[in-house]
Structure formats: structure tokens, C-alpha cells
Design a protein around this nucleic acid. Structure first.
Lengths: 334, 334
DNA sequence: TTGTAAGCGTTATCAC
DNA sequence: GTGATAACGCTTACAA
């Protein structure tokens, strides 16, 4: 695979490579019409494409950013990536996507390699384990933004859902519909900010309303067991707030296997809307987060930082939206 | 953001940059223990990271590949990307992800930019419109593989589902269950190979079995209209083969809005299993494609080509798997 | 055992 | 108007 360089073009057009470079960068102002023509056709004939790697070395800019997500298979990550890629495209940037699987070592590895590749900035859904790494990035002035999560003490702007409001909306909706017992389903907390925030708010609301807490928290398989046991003991609350899409999958699987019907046996409200919620049977009431906007704003901020604008380190909270469908039973207006 | 270069390290360790380079590349064989020690601590103290861009320029290798998908929001693309990224990680590669939205211009643009960035290879879910572009890539010997689709005349290896078998399995299953009228739902063909192949096979099977064809083909919104009209005229076939996940979404939305029940009013079998099929009500019978394996094999092939192995241009077909669930009514054993 | 120097493909400075 | 030349950060013959 032979590569055409600026030298080949220069030779073909019988000029120096400087002149070709001028031509390529649109500085024809003071250039003979004939030279210009010769270069133009040489470029065309040879199908010359400038080598961006060489340019990057000179410019100290790679026109590439990195995105580190936990797992691209989660729809939230997918939407974030899509939003960022769209924005990057407009800015003439490319996006390197990495899956860190919530593993601090993988994450660290990716960050090091992305830096070594001189990417101009990084968007991360960060792992708690690497707090030091991120403060280091910040200290070096490496353009970085967080999405979905927040790391205590890392001076990095963060773009995420207003989790407290999300839980409050879900809770209020259930209360309005006359639910007196509300459970909460989540994956293990793992120091992950949104999970923690959602659970904390749930607890606070239970306390405030003098309600018992039912927490079903664990890896996928244990969720089903817990639900099953509660159902056996007839202690399954009439309503469940489900903390995210993966937890929802487990709940739906469990209900199906246990033969429990929504909303008659259990009412469900999920945080983080998913595609099928709308046409599920019954359609699932959700508190949706504006994943796409979150991604877009994170990108806007990152490019701002890359372009040297001052960006105060702050946490940007996005407002959730309650979408009422059919999975919550109305006991209030019976 | 000051950057530490190999020169800084050399200076700090009071050796030449050559020696540092030797050290970095593990050639300590003939190196004084003290020099080695000095370099080691200099690297550490300065927190030096080699600049991969400079190395790439020299090596003519970027350790980066590109993936162009139609839209990362489709779960098939997501799985392909994840599989490829996993493989790339093992090979110490990074992956640039691009969304071409089935737009030949965007696709061409991305390919040009990826080449300009000197990525070592490209995985594409290709658009028909760019056949010429791909034959050009092939002619230049640029490592390229296709996934999911195939472009007539482009000498590029392709990794995709055995669509004919997939449709045949779906069709046979419905016939076994006593269905005499089978419809087919698809997005517009747009010259996209798998859509075409699936439809063709459907037609062939109808003809072979002396059955009427019911084709519901179009953009999302028209699908619902067509189903609705057929239902009104009482001409909706008792069973529908749905060509992919997006088409399935539309079908499910339509059924819900029209108050049609699965499988009593309509039986459904979908090609391309999706996450929620398993716990949907009723659970949806599907012909699943091994997206992850397809991605992995495509990656394996691409890296083979990158590493100079001979790879005959061929089409690799992957076997689908029928997963029987609850969305097909059994008329045969009533 | 370590260092010198050339080269990868660009761009920028400055001279002609 | 056009062209040497150096520089970006690294690797690698080849020299010492």
C-alpha cells in the first residue's frame, strides 16, 4: 500500500513542497495561476491525501477525543456516545470509544493510552476507584469532562441527571395514586454517585412520609430471588421504583417468571426511560433522563475547554421528565 | 499543559535520547545498571509518557482502527462495536466509531478522514451508494472488512447472517404451527443486502408453498398505517415475520394502538433477537443472529489482514438460532 | 555501553 | 511568487 506524500505532489508539479503546502492550506493569494493549476492536477492525479499524523505532530492537535464509558451495551452510554459523536463531527473531530466495564484498572489503562495518543480531550463516565487519576488529569490541565457520575474532589465539570428530583417525582406520583408501600430496586451501589443519590433520596422520602423502606439491591440474579421471597411472604410492596434500565430488566424477568401482573399485583415506575417502555404490555411509566442533551452539553463543554475558554468546574444537573403510562395502579380514584 | 518529551528525560538522566529510547523499548540487554536506574527514575519523576503520534509517524502504524456503522443506536451495531473493541483492546488497539446514518456522503467523508488519520484498518457496515469507494479501498490494499452487508463487486471480506436460513426457519416454524397466511414486515429495502435477501427468501417460500404474499414495507410511520388498514379489511395475515428490530418496534406499537393481541390476533416472529423479547408479554419468538460472534470474527479477520496474512475475499455466513417463546399461536395441535 | 544523525510528512519562518 | 530549512517527538542504523 504505497502512500502519496506532499513530496510526490511537489515533484509531479515541479514545485517545492512548501508551495504545495501553501496551496493545500488555501493560501493561493500570491500564487501563479499556472503553478496552482499544476499542483491542483498533481493532487488530483495522485489522489493525494494529507497525512494527519504528521500534521498532528506539528500542530500538537489530533482532532480526536476519547470517550470512556462503562459499557457501550447500555442504552444510556449509547445515547451519550451518539450525541457526542454528532457534536464532534460538526467540529471535524473523531471519537475513540472505550469500554472500561467499571474496572478502575481498565479505565486507568485507557486514559493513559488516550493521553499517549495525544487525544485533545476526554469524556468519561468515571469509576470511583480512580479519583487520584482524575485529579492528576485536572492538575495537568488535560481537557476532561464527566458524564452521569461525579468524583468527590476531582475538579472536573460533570453532566448528570438531577437524581433527587427524579426519585422525588417517581415517589410523589406513586403517593398520589394512593400507594402506601413503595420499594426500591437497584444494582449494587459500588460508590457510583447516581445509584447512591437515588437510594438516599428514596430513604429520605420514606422517612419523611413515615413509610417503611423495602430495598432490593444487588446483582441481577439476587434481585429475582429477593422479589420472589418477598412475594412468598406476602411482603412485596405494591409499588416499586426501579433505579435504572438493567435493574428494570431483572424486575420484568422476575415478574414474568413469578406470574405477577403489572399493575395489578405490582406497580412499576422506572428511572431512565427505555425504548420499549412505550409499547410494553402494560406500557411502563418512567422518569426519563435527557441522555442526548446530557451528551451534547458535555461535548459542548469539552470543546469549549479544548478551545481555551474558561470553564468553571461545576456540576450540571438535568431535569428529568415524568412520563405517565400504564404500569402504576391508581388506588386513589377507585 | 506542558508535555514531557524524550529529550526532557534524556536531559534529566544525563544520557542521549537514543539511550532513553532503548530503555523504553526494553533493550536493556547491554545497558549499565546505573544508566538504567537514572533513566528509570527520570521517567518516573517527570511522569513521562511517550508520544504515540510521533511514533506513529515513524512506524507508519497508528494502532487505531475505524468502525463505520449506520447508527450506533441500533443494538446490532452496538454489539458489533463492543465485540470489535474487545478484540482491539487485546491487540492494543483503539477504535474510532463513526455513524454514517446510511448516508453515502457521510460515509465517504468518514472513510477519507479515517484514511487521512492513517488508521490501520476499517470495519464498515457499508452503504450501497459507495461501491466505487470500496473497490478503491480494496485496490489500494487498505485493510477493510464488511459487516452485515455486502457490496456487489467490492473485493472485501464480509461477515453476515445467513439470511436465507433465518427466513426459512421462521417460515417453517410458522407452517409447523399451522399458519396458512404469513406476512412480512420490513423497513424500505434501499438496496441493503440483508433486507433484500430476507424479502427474496420470503417470496420464494410463499411461491413454493402456494401462499399469497403480504408485504408491509416502509418507513416506520407507514408500517402502522398498513397494518391498521389490513386489519380493518380483515385481511391481516395471522402471522408476521418481522425483518429486524426497528420494524418490530413499529409492529408492536401498531398492535398496541390497534388493540390487537399476540398471539391470538396475530402471531409474530422476529429476525434479530432483542433484549426485551425474553420478558415481553407475551415473550417474542425470534430468529437470533450471533451479533457478537460476527463482530469478533470480523475483527479477527481485519487484524489478520493488517498483519499481512493472506485473506481470501469471501463471504462468511453465520447461522441463526430459532428461539421459541410465546408469540406464535399453535393452530396445528389444537 | 552510549551517542550521532537521518528520517517519518507536515507546517512555519524567512530569505530570495 | 517560490523555495530552503528547521522543527514537531520518536526510532534506528551506524559510529565510537
Amino acid at each position: 500500500m504505497k502512500r502519496v506524500t506532499i513530496n510526490d505532489v511537489a515533484q509531479a508539479a515541479r514545485v517545492s513542497k512548501t508551495t504545495v503546502s501553501h496551496y493545500l492550506n488555501g493560501r493561493y493569494a500570491a500564487m501563479g495561476a499556472d503553478t496552482r493549476e499544476r499542483i491542483s492536477s498533481a493532487v488530483h492525479d495522485l489522489n493525494y491525501q494529507p497525512n494527519v499524523v504528521a500534521r498532528s505532530l506539528k500542530d500538537k492537535k489530533t482532532m480526536t477525543i476519547g470517550i470512556i464509558v462503562a459499557n457501550i451495551l447500555h442504552s444510556f452510554s449509547t445515547q451519550i456516545i451518539r450525541a457526542i459523536e454528532d457534536y464532534a463531527r460538526i467540529m471535524n473531530y473523531h471519537v475513540i470509544v472505550c469500554n472500561a466495564d467499571n474496572d478502575p484498572y481498565k479505565e486507568e489503562d485507557y486514559i493513559k493510552m488516550l493521553r499517549a495518543k495525544q487525544v485533545d480531550g476526554i469524556v468519561v463516565i468515571p469509576t470511583e476507584g480512580n479519583a487520584g487519576l482524575f485529579t492528576g488529569l485536572a492538575a495537568d490541565g488535560y481537557p476532561t469532562v464527566f458524564v452521569d457520575r461525579i468524583i468527590e474532589d476531582a475538579p472536573v465539570p460533570s453532566f448528570m441527571l438531577d437524581n433527587e428530583t427524579a426519585v422525588r417525582e417517581a415517589f410523589s406520583h406513586l403517593m398520589e395514586k394512593g400507594h402506601g408501600a413503595i420499594g426500591f430496586v437497584s444494582q449494587p451501589l459500588c460508590e457510583i454517585a447516581p445509584r447512591r443519590e437515588r437510594l438516599d433520596m428514596y430513604r429520605r422520602l420514606c422517612r419523611k412520609n413515615d413509610m417503611e423502606t423495602f430495598e432490593i439491591i444487588g446483582e441481577p440474579d439476587v434481585v429475582e430471588g429477593r422479589i420472589s421471597r418477598l412475594a412468598d411472604e406476602e411482603k412485596l410492596p405494591g409499588a416499586l421504583i426501579v433505579s435504572n434500565d438493567l435493574a428494570l430488566f431483572e424486575v420484568l424477568k422476575a415478574l414474568k417468571r413469578l406470574g405477577l401482573a403489572m399493575p395489578d399485583d405490582v406497580s412499576i415506575i422506572t428511572i431512565d426511560d427505555i425504548a420499549f417502555a412505550e409499547f410494553f404490555n402494560p406500557a411502563i411509566t418512567a422518569v426519563a433522563q435527557p441522555a442526548f442533551s446530557i451528551g451534547t452539553e458535555a461535548a459542548r463543554s469539552l470543546f469549549g475547554i479544548i478551545n481555551g475558554e474558561e470553564h468553571p468546574v461545576s456540576i450540571h444537573r438535568f431535569t428529568p421528565e415524568l412520563i405517565i403510562r400504564e404500569s402504576v395502579k391508581d388506588y386513589a380514584n377507585e
